[in-house]
């Protein structure tokens, strides 16, 4: 187990180094340049050179890269535009993005587990077909379009909820903060649960058709009794994998949805930083998302090993070989 964790940590660090290099390189290859984007039209070459020297973008790329990496360790990365520390920019946006994506994930799980199981168990009857069709529909519709539809109905037509924005005072008025997050949460949850229902449905079908469920039924268990006894754990292995990926995806979904609902969260921060060529902000944000995805994958693997002892047996055999 110790060996497994050590190996995974090494792989995690290697992935991060690689990811940081790719992120950095790709951003430098973007058309447009930080100094130019900041100063706008009508600036002189001298002014541009001055700003470049100040930002350090006149240095060779590898030097820029190493100083960025160094700034990651002491938290001294600063925005090109606002000159604020990026860590502060990010933490100031977390109170919006974190509740948004976690709530969306929880809602999506609560919707998709029962729906997916029902769609799997009753796959040949009307209920199962209707649930499958709905999840296909949810997959086919773009997230921002779902958001716009919800705004049109619940904000513009019925006037139950705000169409966007977030209270200036933040969470000081929890009621206002929560109402402004309802539609964004539902929007992300619809998109996520459409994906999750499909995976949970197929995991359920695998379990329902498995021989051990037939054995349990031949011993006197009801279908639901057999599913509870044997299905939950067996079905959990593939489902945990998709839940982990989706939790990480919910952060990415927030990028799009925050824009639709004008929420000043991480997604909005990322978009403004990209348009302003504010490289340090973009780099740190994308790296943060990468860390989240990699850590989620690691946690998923640990969880799967806890559920299925066969995975431990195979990796132990592999390690000793």
């Amino acid at each position: 187990m110790v060996r497994f964790i050590a190996l995974r940590l090494a792989a995690l660090i290697a992935s991060l180094v690689l990811a940081s290099a790719v992120i950095f390189y790709v951003l430098r290859k973007l058309p447009g340049e930080s100094a130019g984007a900041t100063l706008g039209v009508g600036t002189t070459v001298d002014q541009l050179d001055l700003l470049r020297a100040e930002l350090g973008t006149d240095l060779p790329v590898w030097q820029q890269y190493t100083s960025w990496i160094a700034s990651l360790f002491d938290g001294s990365t600063t925005s090109f535009i606002s000159r604020e520390p990026v860590s502060e920019l990010i933490t100031s946006k977390l109170p919006i993005t974190l509740p948004l994506s976690i709530a969306a994930f929880v809602v999506a799980v609560l919707i998709s587990i029962p729906l997916g199981v029902i769609a799997g168990v009753y796959r040949e009857s009307v209920v199962g077909v209707v649930v499958s069709a709905l999840s296909q529909l949810g997959l086919a519709i773009p997230v921002f379009w779902v958001g716009l539809l919800l705004v049109w109905w619940f904000a513009l037509r019925e006037r139950w909820l705000p169409s966007g924005g977030f209270p200036r005072t933040g969470w000081e008025d929890p009621g206002a903060a929560i109402t402004s997050l309802v539609l964004p949460v539902v929007t992300i949850a619809i998109a996520m649960s459409s994906v999750m229902v499909r995976y949970i449905r197929s995991a359920t079908i695998d379990v329902v058709q498995s021989d051990y469920i037939r054995t349990a039924r031949s011993l006197g268990y009801s279908m639901w009794g057999a599913l509870a006894r044997h299905g939950l754990r067996n079905g959990a292995v593939p489902v945990v994998a998709i839940l982990g990926i989706e939790l990480a995806t919910s952060l990415l979904g927030a990028v799009v949805v925050e824009n639709v609902f004008a929420l000043p969260g991480l997604g909005t921060l990322l978009l403004t930083a990209v348009t302003g060529r504010d490289f340090p902000v973009v780099q740190n944000l994308v790296l943060l998302l990468t860390v989240v995805v990699l850590v989620m994958n690691f946690l998923v693997e640990l969880l799967q090993r806890a559920i299925d002892p066969r995975l431990q047996a195979t990796s132990a055999a592999g390690a000793s070989a």
Binding site: R214, S218, L219, G220, P309
Partner: peptide, 24 residues
């Protein structure tokens, strides 16, 4: 019928690996 299954009539299947729950 569930009171009959396993109590009065029981069954053994062809493939013992898949007929048993791998995680129990």
């Amino acid at each position: 019928l569930r009171k009959v299954r396993g109590a009065r009539i029981a069954m053994v299947f062809q493939e013992p690996l898949t007929a048993l729950d791998p995680l129990m």
